[in-house]
């Protein structure tokens, strides 16, 4: 079965200027991820994982090469065009949760729906919060929630608009192991339910092992694909 390719890169390079001269962060990365796949990007610190994620999500611009999401060449769009595309097709879960501190849990989940002009934002957000078992904490502010709860809100926020692709950057990095595992369970559960493509950056082999594919980065270069253990 040849599934639809949702994330695709061609010859992706990222170089930055540093006081010691030009620094290569990514070097000729080619990858394609099919719809519904779960993929882990693994590698040591400084191997370029986060840089790659930033480029895949269109948060940063490559020095060379192409990225397309759902067939749309990201860098043929301007920054606003990419923002629109993210709003329509992409969800995020971050290591530092990135909830808006002044918004309640419910309002944080509503935010992407509101930005998209959805009138059923509250209803959808309530349903998703229910789904992550935080309905009773809907009116709490992030600082009143534990780390695990905050990440569940972030996951609810990411899934609420039904994105095609979900990028997760070290989603358990700030959590203890047990909480982390519960978060991962939730992530995979929702992923399965919605048929979302999941791209996960992690250095946790345990977490990476739960993905269908693992891509290893080393000094900016994609190594051979590791088979799931």
């Amino acid at each position: 079965m040849t599934a639809e390719i949702v994330v695709n890169t061609q010859n992706l390079h990222k170089r930055v200027m540093s006081p010691e001269g030009e620094l290569t962060l990514l070097q000729g990365v080619d990858l394609s991820i099919a719809a519904g796949e779960t993929v882990a990007i693994v590698g040591a610190s400084g191997s370029g994982k986060s840089t790659l994620l930033g480029l895949l999500a269109g948060l940063d611009e490559p020095t060379e090469g192409q990225v397309s999401i759902a067939g749309q060449d990201l860098f043929a769009l301007d920054e606003d065009g990419r923002a629109r595309l993210r709003g329509e097709k992409v969800g995020f879960v971050f290591q530092a949760f990135q909830l808006l501190p002044n918004l309640t849990a419910l309002e944080n989940v509503m935010l992407p729906l509101e930005l998209a002009g959805r009138h059923d934002a509250r209803q959808v957000a309530e349903e998703v919060l229910q789904r992550v078992a935080l309905a009773e904490r809907a009116s709490h502010y992030p600082k009143q929630l534990s780390g695990g709860e905050q990440q569940r809100v972030a996951i609810a926020r990411a899934f609420a608009p039904h994105p095609q692709v979900l990028f997760a950057d070290e989603p358990t990095g700030n959590l203890d192991r047990r909480t982390g595992e519960r978060i991962i369970d939730l992530l995979f559960q929702l992923n399965a339910e919605q048929g979302t493509t999941l791209v996960l950056v992690t250095h946790d082999p345990h977490l990476a092992a739960r993905c269908q594919r693992q891509l290893e980065l080393d000094e900016g270069q994609l190594q051979m694909e590791l088979e799931p253990s």
């Binding site: 999500a57 948060l59 709003g87 002044n102 930005l115 998209a116």
Partner: peptide, 16 residues
């Protein structure tokens, strides 16, 4: 600063 970055991440255009 963070709020704006997140909103842009969630699909908000600059003009918006």
């Amino acid at each position: 600063l963070d709020n704006c970055a997140i909103m842009r991440c969630l699909g908000a255009e600059q003009a918006m």
